[in-house]
Design a protein around this nucleic acid. Structure first.
Length: 494
RNA sequence: GCCGCAUUCGUCUAGUGGCCCAGGACACCGCCCUCUCAAGGCGGAGAUCAGGGGUUCGAAUCCCCUAUGCGGCACCA
Protein backbone atom coordinates (compact mmCIF):
# COMPACT_ATOMS: atom_id res chain seq x y z
CA UNK A 1 0.00 0.00 0.00
CA UNK A 2 1.24 3.40 -0.87
CA UNK A 3 2.15 5.92 1.72
CA UNK A 4 -0.07 8.91 2.49
CA UNK A 5 0.95 11.75 4.77
CA UNK A 6 -0.70 14.97 5.60
CA UNK A 7 -0.15 18.47 6.86
CA UNK A 8 -3.08 19.50 9.00
CA UNK A 9 -2.71 23.07 10.17
CA UNK A 10 -5.23 25.16 12.01
CA UNK A 11 -6.15 28.50 10.49
CA UNK A 12 -4.77 30.45 13.41
CA UNK A 13 -2.23 32.56 11.56
CA UNK A 14 0.90 32.15 9.52
CA UNK A 15 2.71 28.87 9.81
CA UNK A 16 5.90 29.12 11.81
CA UNK A 17 9.10 27.31 11.12
CA UNK A 18 8.63 24.57 13.70
CA UNK A 19 5.28 23.69 12.33
CA UNK A 20 6.39 23.87 8.73
CA UNK A 21 9.43 21.70 9.33
CA UNK A 22 7.17 18.81 10.26
CA UNK A 23 5.18 19.43 7.10
CA UNK A 24 8.38 19.43 5.09
CA UNK A 25 9.47 16.12 6.50
CA UNK A 26 6.07 14.59 5.85
CA UNK A 27 6.06 15.89 2.30
CA UNK A 28 9.56 14.60 1.66
CA UNK A 29 8.70 11.20 3.02
CA UNK A 30 5.61 10.99 0.84
CA UNK A 31 7.49 12.07 -2.26
CA UNK A 32 10.46 9.89 -1.64
CA UNK A 33 8.25 6.85 -1.32
CA UNK A 34 6.03 7.70 -4.22
CA UNK A 35 3.06 8.38 -1.95
CA UNK A 36 0.61 11.21 -1.55
CA UNK A 37 0.79 14.42 0.40
CA UNK A 38 -2.44 15.95 1.60
CA UNK A 39 -3.27 19.30 3.12
CA UNK A 40 -6.21 19.43 5.47
CA UNK A 41 -7.51 22.42 7.34
CA UNK A 42 -8.34 21.77 10.96
CA UNK A 43 -10.74 24.55 11.75
CA UNK A 44 -12.82 23.03 14.48
CA UNK A 45 -12.24 25.92 16.82
CA UNK A 46 -14.19 28.76 15.29
CA UNK A 47 -13.14 31.18 17.99
CA UNK A 48 -9.47 30.96 17.12
CA UNK A 49 -9.80 31.21 13.38
CA UNK A 50 -7.84 34.03 11.76
CA UNK A 51 -9.03 35.37 8.45
CA UNK A 52 -6.85 34.64 5.49
CA UNK A 53 -4.90 31.94 7.26
CA UNK A 54 -5.54 29.24 4.71
CA UNK A 55 -4.26 31.40 1.89
CA UNK A 56 -1.14 32.26 3.87
CA UNK A 57 -0.56 28.64 4.77
CA UNK A 58 -0.81 27.52 1.18
CA UNK A 59 1.34 30.43 0.06
CA UNK A 60 4.00 29.41 2.55
CA UNK A 61 4.01 25.88 1.22
CA UNK A 62 4.13 27.03 -2.37
CA UNK A 63 6.97 29.39 -1.67
CA UNK A 64 8.97 26.52 -0.23
CA UNK A 65 8.23 24.44 -3.29
CA UNK A 66 5.96 21.99 -1.53
CA UNK A 67 3.14 20.58 -3.61
CA UNK A 68 0.14 18.53 -2.54
CA UNK A 69 -2.08 15.99 -4.19
CA UNK A 70 -5.24 16.72 -2.29
CA UNK A 71 -6.24 19.76 -0.36
CA UNK A 72 -8.76 22.50 0.39
CA UNK A 73 -7.94 24.37 -2.80
CA UNK A 74 -7.79 21.48 -5.23
CA UNK A 75 -10.11 18.95 -3.67
CA UNK A 76 -9.52 15.25 -4.11
CA UNK A 77 -11.15 11.87 -3.61
CA UNK A 78 -11.79 12.56 0.06
CA UNK A 79 -13.08 16.10 -0.26
CA UNK A 80 -13.82 18.31 1.46
CA UNK A 81 -10.46 18.95 3.11
CA UNK A 82 -11.79 21.43 5.59
CA UNK A 83 -13.03 20.01 8.84
CA UNK A 84 -15.83 22.48 9.39
CA UNK A 85 -17.34 21.07 6.20
CA UNK A 86 -17.16 17.50 7.40
CA UNK A 87 -19.29 17.78 10.50
CA UNK A 88 -21.73 15.03 9.59
CA UNK A 89 -18.88 12.53 9.55
CA UNK A 90 -17.89 13.37 13.07
CA UNK A 91 -21.49 13.23 14.18
CA UNK A 92 -21.83 9.80 12.68
CA UNK A 93 -18.76 8.64 14.56
CA UNK A 94 -20.10 10.13 17.77
CA UNK A 95 -23.38 8.33 17.30
CA UNK A 96 -21.62 5.08 16.76
CA UNK A 97 -19.49 5.59 19.83
CA UNK A 98 -22.38 6.62 22.04
CA UNK A 99 -24.51 3.82 20.72
CA UNK A 100 -21.86 1.28 21.57
CA UNK A 101 -21.31 2.73 25.03
CA UNK A 102 -17.81 3.96 24.30
CA UNK A 103 -18.86 7.57 24.74
CA UNK A 104 -21.51 9.42 26.63
CA UNK A 105 -23.25 12.70 27.01
CA UNK A 106 -21.92 15.02 29.73
CA UNK A 107 -23.82 17.98 31.10
CA UNK A 108 -21.18 19.42 33.36
CA UNK A 109 -20.72 23.10 32.69
CA UNK A 110 -17.35 24.74 32.18
CA UNK A 111 -17.89 26.56 35.46
CA UNK A 112 -18.46 23.33 37.34
CA UNK A 113 -15.39 21.82 35.78
CA UNK A 114 -13.13 24.70 36.62
CA UNK A 115 -14.43 24.71 40.18
CA UNK A 116 -13.63 21.01 40.35
CA UNK A 117 -10.16 21.66 39.03
CA UNK A 118 -9.55 24.30 41.64
CA UNK A 119 -10.66 21.99 44.37
CA UNK A 120 -8.46 19.21 43.08
CA UNK A 121 -5.50 21.52 43.06
CA UNK A 122 -6.23 22.70 46.57
CA UNK A 123 -6.39 19.11 47.74
CA UNK A 124 -3.26 18.29 45.74
CA UNK A 125 -5.05 15.63 43.78
CA UNK A 126 -4.54 15.02 40.09
CA UNK A 127 -6.76 17.32 38.10
CA UNK A 128 -9.24 16.10 35.56
CA UNK A 129 -12.74 15.04 34.88
CA UNK A 130 -13.93 12.50 37.40
CA UNK A 131 -16.75 10.83 35.52
CA UNK A 132 -19.71 12.69 36.95
CA UNK A 133 -21.99 11.98 34.00
CA UNK A 134 -20.64 8.57 33.16
CA UNK A 135 -23.67 6.62 34.30
CA UNK A 136 -26.56 8.92 33.61
CA UNK A 137 -29.75 6.97 32.82
CA UNK A 138 -30.54 7.27 29.14
CA UNK A 139 -34.01 8.59 29.92
CA UNK A 140 -32.47 11.46 31.84
CA UNK A 141 -30.05 12.17 29.02
CA UNK A 142 -32.84 12.28 26.52
CA UNK A 143 -34.99 14.60 28.57
CA UNK A 144 -32.18 16.97 29.45
CA UNK A 145 -31.24 17.27 25.81
CA UNK A 146 -34.86 17.78 24.92
CA UNK A 147 -35.00 20.43 27.58
CA UNK A 148 -32.34 22.32 25.72
CA UNK A 149 -29.55 21.76 28.20
CA UNK A 150 -26.08 22.14 26.75
CA UNK A 151 -23.91 19.08 26.71
CA UNK A 152 -20.76 17.59 25.30
CA UNK A 153 -19.86 14.04 24.43
CA UNK A 154 -17.02 12.38 26.29
CA UNK A 155 -15.06 9.33 25.34
CA UNK A 156 -14.73 6.74 28.05
CA UNK A 157 -11.15 5.82 28.87
CA UNK A 158 -10.41 2.57 30.69
CA UNK A 159 -10.07 2.89 34.46
CA UNK A 160 -7.15 0.57 34.87
CA UNK A 161 -4.48 -1.17 32.90
CA UNK A 162 -2.27 0.66 30.47
CA UNK A 163 -2.55 2.10 27.02
CA UNK A 164 0.49 1.51 24.89
CA UNK A 165 1.40 2.66 21.45
CA UNK A 166 4.45 2.79 19.29
CA UNK A 167 6.02 6.05 18.37
CA UNK A 168 7.92 5.59 15.15
CA UNK A 169 10.94 7.43 16.50
CA UNK A 170 10.90 6.62 20.21
CA UNK A 171 9.57 3.11 20.31
CA UNK A 172 6.91 1.91 22.69
CA UNK A 173 5.32 4.43 25.01
CA UNK A 174 2.79 3.42 27.58
CA UNK A 175 0.76 5.21 30.19
CA UNK A 176 -1.35 4.09 33.08
CA UNK A 177 -5.01 4.44 32.32
CA UNK A 178 -5.50 5.68 35.83
CA UNK A 179 -3.89 8.92 34.68
CA UNK A 180 -6.31 9.27 31.83
CA UNK A 181 -9.61 11.05 31.95
CA UNK A 182 -12.73 10.81 29.86
CA UNK A 183 -12.13 13.52 27.30
CA UNK A 184 -14.45 15.58 25.18
CA UNK A 185 -14.86 14.50 21.58
CA UNK A 186 -17.84 16.66 20.69
CA UNK A 187 -18.18 20.20 21.97
CA UNK A 188 -21.45 21.78 22.93
CA UNK A 189 -21.41 23.83 19.74
CA UNK A 190 -21.60 20.64 17.74
CA UNK A 191 -17.98 20.78 16.57
CA UNK A 192 -15.68 17.88 17.27
CA UNK A 193 -12.45 18.36 19.18
CA UNK A 194 -9.13 17.74 17.49
CA UNK A 195 -8.99 14.29 19.02
CA UNK A 196 -12.07 13.00 17.30
CA UNK A 197 -11.77 15.00 14.12
CA UNK A 198 -8.29 13.94 13.18
CA UNK A 199 -8.96 10.31 13.98
CA UNK A 200 -12.02 10.26 11.76
CA UNK A 201 -10.28 12.13 8.97
CA UNK A 202 -6.97 10.37 9.05
CA UNK A 203 -8.85 7.13 8.73
CA UNK A 204 -11.21 8.37 6.03
CA UNK A 205 -8.33 9.87 4.09
CA UNK A 206 -6.29 6.71 4.44
CA UNK A 207 -3.40 8.45 6.12
CA UNK A 208 -0.60 6.01 6.81
CA UNK A 209 1.63 8.19 9.00
CA UNK A 210 0.43 10.76 11.45
CA UNK A 211 3.17 13.36 11.73
CA UNK A 212 2.85 16.05 14.35
CA UNK A 213 4.78 17.81 17.07
CA UNK A 214 5.81 15.96 20.19
CA UNK A 215 3.49 18.05 22.28
CA UNK A 216 0.90 15.54 21.11
CA UNK A 217 2.54 12.57 22.76
CA UNK A 218 0.56 13.00 26.00
CA UNK A 219 -2.74 12.77 24.16
CA UNK A 220 -1.74 9.98 21.83
CA UNK A 221 -3.22 7.33 24.15
CA UNK A 222 -6.60 8.96 23.64
CA UNK A 223 -6.22 8.75 19.91
CA UNK A 224 -5.17 5.15 20.03
CA UNK A 225 -8.24 4.26 22.08
CA UNK A 226 -10.44 6.20 19.72
CA UNK A 227 -9.05 4.46 16.66
CA UNK A 228 -9.68 1.14 18.33
CA UNK A 229 -13.20 1.98 19.49
CA UNK A 230 -14.08 2.98 15.94
CA UNK A 231 -12.47 -0.21 14.70
CA UNK A 232 -9.92 1.66 12.65
CA UNK A 233 -6.32 0.64 12.14
CA UNK A 234 -3.95 2.96 13.95
CA UNK A 235 -1.66 4.75 11.49
CA UNK A 236 2.00 5.01 12.26
CA UNK A 237 2.57 7.73 14.83
CA UNK A 238 5.53 10.03 14.22
CA UNK A 239 6.07 12.67 16.86
CA UNK A 240 8.48 15.31 15.77
CA UNK A 241 10.80 17.04 18.27
CA UNK A 242 10.23 20.68 19.08
CA UNK A 243 12.41 23.49 17.88
CA UNK A 244 13.91 25.62 20.61
CA UNK A 245 14.52 29.31 20.49
CA UNK A 246 17.99 30.76 21.07
CA UNK A 247 17.17 31.01 24.76
CA UNK A 248 16.33 27.35 25.08
CA UNK A 249 12.59 27.84 25.36
CA UNK A 250 10.22 26.39 22.83
CA UNK A 251 10.35 28.46 19.68
CA UNK A 252 7.32 30.68 19.55
CA UNK A 253 6.40 34.15 18.48
CA UNK A 254 7.73 35.41 21.76
CA UNK A 255 10.96 33.53 21.36
CA UNK A 256 12.05 34.77 18.03
CA UNK A 257 10.01 32.45 15.84
CA UNK A 258 9.16 33.89 12.51
CA UNK A 259 6.69 32.76 9.95
CA UNK A 260 7.83 31.31 6.68
CA UNK A 261 6.62 34.32 4.79
CA UNK A 262 8.68 36.59 7.00
CA UNK A 263 11.81 34.73 6.03
CA UNK A 264 10.90 35.25 2.42
CA UNK A 265 10.49 38.91 3.16
CA UNK A 266 13.83 39.10 4.93
CA UNK A 267 15.65 37.88 1.88
CA UNK A 268 16.09 34.21 2.54
CA UNK A 269 15.67 31.95 -0.39
CA UNK A 270 13.28 29.06 -0.15
CA UNK A 271 15.72 26.28 -0.96
CA UNK A 272 18.09 27.46 1.76
CA UNK A 273 15.41 27.71 4.42
CA UNK A 274 14.14 24.30 3.43
CA UNK A 275 17.59 22.76 3.58
CA UNK A 276 18.27 24.37 6.91
CA UNK A 277 14.98 23.32 8.46
CA UNK A 278 15.33 19.76 7.26
CA UNK A 279 18.71 19.59 8.93
CA UNK A 280 17.42 20.41 12.37
CA UNK A 281 16.77 16.91 13.57
CA UNK A 282 17.93 15.10 10.50
CA UNK A 283 21.25 14.56 8.80
CA UNK A 284 22.23 12.97 5.53
CA UNK A 285 25.45 11.41 6.70
CA UNK A 286 26.77 13.57 9.48
CA UNK A 287 29.10 15.36 7.10
CA UNK A 288 27.06 16.95 4.37
CA UNK A 289 25.25 20.13 5.24
CA UNK A 290 24.06 21.28 1.87
CA UNK A 291 21.67 18.69 0.57
CA UNK A 292 19.96 19.40 -2.72
CA UNK A 293 16.28 18.67 -2.94
CA UNK A 294 16.88 15.99 -5.55
CA UNK A 295 19.02 14.16 -3.05
CA UNK A 296 16.42 14.49 -0.33
CA UNK A 297 13.80 13.11 -2.66
CA UNK A 298 16.05 10.17 -3.17
CA UNK A 299 17.02 9.28 0.37
CA UNK A 300 14.84 10.99 2.93
CA UNK A 301 12.96 8.78 5.31
CA UNK A 302 10.93 10.00 8.22
CA UNK A 303 12.14 7.15 10.37
CA UNK A 304 15.63 8.63 10.35
CA UNK A 305 14.62 11.69 12.31
CA UNK A 306 16.25 12.53 15.59
CA UNK A 307 14.24 12.91 18.75
CA UNK A 308 15.88 15.57 20.84
CA UNK A 309 14.73 19.17 20.83
CA UNK A 310 17.03 21.42 18.86
CA UNK A 311 17.74 25.12 18.81
CA UNK A 312 17.16 27.28 15.80
CA UNK A 313 20.48 28.90 14.92
CA UNK A 314 19.84 31.92 12.76
CA UNK A 315 23.52 32.45 12.11
CA UNK A 316 23.81 29.08 10.50
CA UNK A 317 20.69 29.73 8.47
CA UNK A 318 22.30 32.90 7.15
CA UNK A 319 25.41 31.01 6.25
CA UNK A 320 23.38 28.47 4.38
CA UNK A 321 21.47 31.15 2.56
CA UNK A 322 24.79 32.56 1.43
CA UNK A 323 25.81 29.16 0.16
CA UNK A 324 22.65 28.89 -1.91
CA UNK A 325 23.09 32.39 -3.23
CA UNK A 326 26.58 31.53 -4.38
CA UNK A 327 25.61 28.23 -5.91
CA UNK A 328 22.63 29.49 -7.84
CA UNK A 329 23.01 29.74 -11.62
CA UNK A 330 23.83 33.33 -12.48
CA UNK A 331 20.84 33.99 -14.71
CA UNK A 332 18.43 32.80 -12.08
CA UNK A 333 20.18 34.78 -9.42
CA UNK A 334 20.19 37.99 -11.40
CA UNK A 335 16.49 37.57 -12.04
CA UNK A 336 16.00 37.22 -8.30
CA UNK A 337 18.17 40.29 -7.79
CA UNK A 338 16.19 42.32 -10.28
CA UNK A 339 12.91 41.55 -8.60
CA UNK A 340 14.32 42.33 -5.20
CA UNK A 341 15.94 45.56 -6.37
CA UNK A 342 12.79 46.81 -7.99
CA UNK A 343 11.22 46.45 -4.61
CA UNK A 344 14.02 47.80 -2.43
CA UNK A 345 15.71 50.52 -4.44
CA UNK A 346 14.73 54.14 -3.80
CA UNK A 347 11.67 55.37 -5.65
CA UNK A 348 13.53 57.71 -7.95
CA UNK A 349 15.25 54.84 -9.72
CA UNK A 350 13.34 54.12 -12.92
CA UNK A 351 11.63 50.78 -13.28
CA UNK A 352 11.62 48.26 -14.68
CA UNK A 353 15.32 47.78 -14.18
CA UNK A 354 17.52 46.96 -17.10
CA UNK A 355 17.96 43.21 -16.75
CA UNK A 356 21.22 43.19 -18.62
CA UNK A 357 22.61 45.78 -16.27
CA UNK A 358 21.54 43.78 -13.23
CA UNK A 359 23.10 40.73 -14.77
CA UNK A 360 26.34 42.61 -15.12
CA UNK A 361 26.60 43.43 -11.48
CA UNK A 362 25.37 40.11 -10.21
CA UNK A 363 28.76 38.38 -10.14
CA UNK A 364 30.24 41.30 -8.26
CA UNK A 365 27.97 41.00 -5.26
CA UNK A 366 26.79 37.43 -5.16
CA UNK A 367 29.50 36.19 -2.87
CA UNK A 368 29.39 39.20 -0.63
CA UNK A 369 25.96 38.71 0.81
CA UNK A 370 23.99 36.39 2.98
CA UNK A 371 20.54 37.86 2.56
CA UNK A 372 18.75 39.35 -0.40
CA UNK A 373 17.81 42.26 1.79
CA UNK A 374 21.48 43.30 1.85
CA UNK A 375 21.47 43.75 -1.89
CA UNK A 376 19.96 47.18 -2.41
CA UNK A 377 22.18 49.04 0.07
CA UNK A 378 25.15 47.29 -1.49
CA UNK A 379 24.49 48.34 -5.06
CA UNK A 380 22.35 51.45 -4.91
CA UNK A 381 25.15 53.67 -6.20
CA UNK A 382 25.11 51.77 -9.49
CA UNK A 383 21.64 53.06 -10.11
CA UNK A 384 21.73 56.53 -8.64
CA UNK A 385 22.41 59.37 -10.99
CA UNK A 386 24.31 61.21 -8.34
CA UNK A 387 25.43 60.06 -4.96
CA UNK A 388 26.29 61.84 -1.79
CA UNK A 389 30.02 62.18 -1.39
CA UNK A 390 31.09 61.03 2.07
CA UNK A 391 31.92 63.87 4.44
CA UNK A 392 35.53 64.86 4.55
CA UNK A 393 36.27 62.92 7.69
CA UNK A 394 35.09 59.66 6.15
CA UNK A 395 36.69 60.45 2.83
CA UNK A 396 40.10 61.20 4.29
CA UNK A 397 40.13 58.39 6.76
CA UNK A 398 43.16 57.86 8.95
CA UNK A 399 45.46 57.89 6.00
CA UNK A 400 44.86 61.41 4.76
CA UNK A 401 43.51 63.08 7.86
CA UNK A 402 46.54 65.27 8.10
CA UNK A 403 47.05 65.86 4.43
CA UNK A 404 43.72 66.63 2.83
CA UNK A 405 45.47 68.50 0.06
CA UNK A 406 47.22 65.31 -0.99
CA UNK A 407 43.93 63.48 -1.08
CA UNK A 408 42.38 66.23 -3.11
CA UNK A 409 45.24 66.09 -5.55
CA UNK A 410 44.98 62.30 -5.87
CA UNK A 411 41.28 62.44 -6.54
CA UNK A 412 41.74 65.07 -9.20
CA UNK A 413 44.64 63.18 -10.75
CA UNK A 414 42.57 60.01 -10.80
CA UNK A 415 39.78 61.82 -12.56
CA UNK A 416 42.17 63.18 -15.14
CA UNK A 417 43.92 59.85 -15.44
CA UNK A 418 40.89 57.78 -16.23
CA UNK A 419 39.24 60.38 -18.35
CA UNK A 420 41.56 59.69 -21.20
CA UNK A 421 41.22 55.93 -21.19
CA UNK A 422 40.42 54.55 -24.60
CA UNK A 423 38.14 51.53 -24.47
CA UNK A 424 36.88 51.63 -20.90
CA UNK A 425 37.69 48.25 -19.33
CA UNK A 426 38.68 46.76 -16.01
CA UNK A 427 42.31 46.08 -16.89
CA UNK A 428 42.84 49.55 -18.30
CA UNK A 429 41.33 51.27 -15.32
CA UNK A 430 43.41 49.22 -12.96
CA UNK A 431 46.71 49.74 -14.74
CA UNK A 432 46.05 53.45 -15.13
CA UNK A 433 45.38 53.88 -11.44
CA UNK A 434 48.35 51.76 -10.47
CA UNK A 435 50.60 53.83 -12.67
CA UNK A 436 49.22 56.91 -11.07
CA UNK A 437 49.90 55.64 -7.57
CA UNK A 438 53.46 54.83 -8.56
CA UNK A 439 54.02 58.24 -10.14
CA UNK A 440 52.71 60.05 -7.12
CA UNK A 441 54.42 57.69 -4.72
CA UNK A 442 51.29 56.68 -2.88
CA UNK A 443 50.36 53.19 -1.85
CA UNK A 444 48.00 51.78 -4.46
CA UNK A 445 45.61 50.65 -1.76
CA UNK A 446 45.32 54.17 -0.40
CA UNK A 447 44.52 55.62 -3.76
CA UNK A 448 42.02 52.88 -4.42
CA UNK A 449 40.20 53.53 -1.18
CA UNK A 450 39.90 57.19 -2.03
CA UNK A 451 38.47 56.29 -5.42
CA UNK A 452 36.14 53.74 -3.89
CA UNK A 453 34.74 56.29 -1.49
CA UNK A 454 34.36 58.84 -4.24
CA UNK A 455 32.73 56.58 -6.78
CA UNK A 456 30.47 54.53 -4.52
CA UNK A 457 30.12 56.63 -1.42
CA UNK A 458 30.92 53.58 0.68
CA UNK A 459 34.03 52.09 2.27
CA UNK A 460 32.89 48.54 1.57
CA UNK A 461 32.03 47.65 -1.99
CA UNK A 462 32.54 45.12 -4.72
CA UNK A 463 35.99 45.20 -6.38
CA UNK A 464 36.81 48.75 -7.44
CA UNK A 465 37.75 48.37 -11.08
CA UNK A 466 34.87 46.11 -11.97
CA UNK A 467 32.64 48.53 -10.19
CA UNK A 468 34.04 51.49 -12.04
CA UNK A 469 33.68 49.73 -15.33
CA UNK A 470 29.99 49.26 -14.73
CA UNK A 471 29.44 52.74 -13.35
CA UNK A 472 30.97 54.06 -16.55
CA UNK A 473 33.64 56.69 -17.30
CA UNK A 474 31.40 59.74 -17.19
CA UNK A 475 29.94 59.11 -13.77
CA UNK A 476 33.29 57.98 -12.38
CA UNK A 477 35.05 61.14 -13.48
CA UNK A 478 32.21 63.25 -12.28
CA UNK A 479 32.16 61.64 -8.85
CA UNK A 480 35.92 61.80 -8.47
CA UNK A 481 35.87 65.51 -9.27
CA UNK A 482 33.00 66.09 -6.90
CA UNK A 483 34.93 64.36 -4.16
CA UNK A 484 38.06 66.37 -4.91
CA UNK A 485 36.27 69.67 -4.72
CA UNK A 486 34.44 68.62 -1.55
CA UNK A 487 37.88 68.74 0.02
CA UNK A 488 38.60 72.30 -1.10
CA UNK A 489 37.75 74.01 2.16
CA UNK A 490 39.52 71.47 4.35
CA UNK A 491 42.59 71.45 2.18
CA UNK A 492 42.92 75.22 2.14
CA UNK A 493 42.64 75.43 5.88
CA UNK A 494 45.39 72.92 6.31
C1' G B 1 1.65 18.74 41.87
C1' C B 2 0.84 14.56 38.46
C1' C B 3 2.15 12.26 33.73
C1' G B 4 5.33 11.95 29.51
C1' C B 5 9.55 12.89 26.36
C1' A B 6 14.54 14.29 25.89
C1' U B 7 19.99 14.78 27.38
C1' U B 8 27.27 13.97 22.32
C1' C B 9 31.81 20.60 21.40
C1' G B 10 28.40 27.49 22.51
C1' U B 11 24.83 25.71 18.34
C1' C B 12 23.13 21.83 14.42
C1' U B 13 24.69 16.95 14.09
C1' A B 14 27.65 11.73 13.03
C1' G B 15 27.80 7.64 15.97
C1' U B 16 23.22 1.67 17.36
C1' G B 17 29.26 -2.75 21.92
C1' G B 18 35.52 -2.66 19.94
C1' C B 19 37.24 1.42 13.58
C1' C B 20 35.87 7.01 19.02
C1' C B 21 41.16 9.37 24.60
C1' A B 22 34.43 10.83 19.64
C1' G B 23 33.97 12.75 13.15
C1' G B 24 31.58 16.94 10.16
C1' A B 25 29.19 21.91 9.93
C1' C B 26 28.02 27.01 11.92
C1' A B 27 30.16 30.47 15.12
C1' C B 28 35.14 31.75 17.18
C1' C B 29 40.75 32.41 16.73
C1' G B 30 45.29 32.45 13.55
C1' C B 31 47.69 32.32 8.78
C1' C B 32 47.38 32.62 3.33
C1' C B 33 45.02 35.15 -0.83
C1' U B 34 43.89 40.50 -1.39
C1' C B 35 42.24 47.46 -3.84
C1' U B 36 37.87 47.46 0.83
C1' C B 37 34.41 43.76 2.33
C1' A B 38 33.30 39.11 1.41
C1' A B 39 34.17 34.41 -0.68
C1' G B 40 37.99 30.72 -0.80
C1' G B 41 42.36 27.76 1.11
C1' C B 42 45.09 25.98 5.33
C1' G B 43 45.46 25.42 10.56
C1' G B 44 43.74 25.96 15.81
C1' A B 45 40.85 25.91 20.02
C1' G B 46 36.39 23.62 21.64
C1' A B 47 32.54 17.44 24.24
C1' U B 48 35.95 13.43 30.79
C1' C B 49 29.41 11.64 25.23
C1' A B 50 24.31 15.35 31.91
C1' G B 51 25.86 12.72 36.78
C1' G B 52 26.03 8.05 39.42
C1' G B 53 25.58 2.97 39.50
C1' G B 54 25.44 -1.63 36.92
C1' U B 55 25.86 -5.51 32.49
C1' U B 56 30.30 -6.82 29.49
C1' C B 57 36.94 -8.84 28.19
C1' G B 58 35.28 -3.98 26.25
C1' A B 59 29.92 1.24 26.42
C1' A B 60 28.57 7.57 23.84
C1' U B 61 26.13 3.07 22.31
C1' C B 62 22.37 -1.99 26.75
C1' C B 63 19.81 -1.68 31.99
C1' C B 64 18.66 1.14 36.60
C1' C B 65 18.65 5.60 39.55
C1' U B 66 19.31 10.88 39.99
C1' A B 67 19.58 15.74 37.93
C1' U B 68 18.29 19.15 34.41
C1' G B 69 15.48 20.83 30.23
C1' C B 70 11.17 20.66 27.50
C1' G B 71 6.16 19.26 26.84
C1' G B 72 1.15 17.89 28.44
C1' C B 73 -2.64 17.99 32.25
C1' A B 74 -9.20 22.91 28.16
C1' C B 75 -15.94 22.19 25.38
C1' C B 76 -7.32 24.95 21.74
C1' A B 77 -5.10 22.67 18.30
Amino acid sequence: MSVRLRYAPSPTGDPHVGNIRTALWAWLHARRHGGDFIVRLEDTDQSRAVDGSLERILASLRWLGVDWDEGPDIGGPHAPYVQSQRLHRYHAAVEELVGGGAAYRCFCTPEELSALRKQQQAEKRPTGYEGTCRALPSAEVTSRIAGGEASVVRFRMPDDGVTAFTDALRGEISVDNSTQEDFVILKSDGFPTYHLAHVVDDHAMEITHITRGEEWIPSAPRHVRLFEALDYDVPELVHTPVILGPDGGKLSKRHGAKSVLEYAEDGYIAAALLNFLINIGWSLDGETEVVPLEKLLEVFDIHDLGVSPAAFDTTKLEWMNGVYLREMPERLLSELFAVRLERDLPGDVARPLDRAFVEELTPLVRERMKLLSELAPMVDFFFATDIATPDSGALLGKRYRKRPDVARGLLAAAADGIEGIEGWAVELIESRLRELAAELEEKPGDLFMLCRLAVTGKPVTPPLFETMEIVGPERCVERLRAAASSLDSVATEA
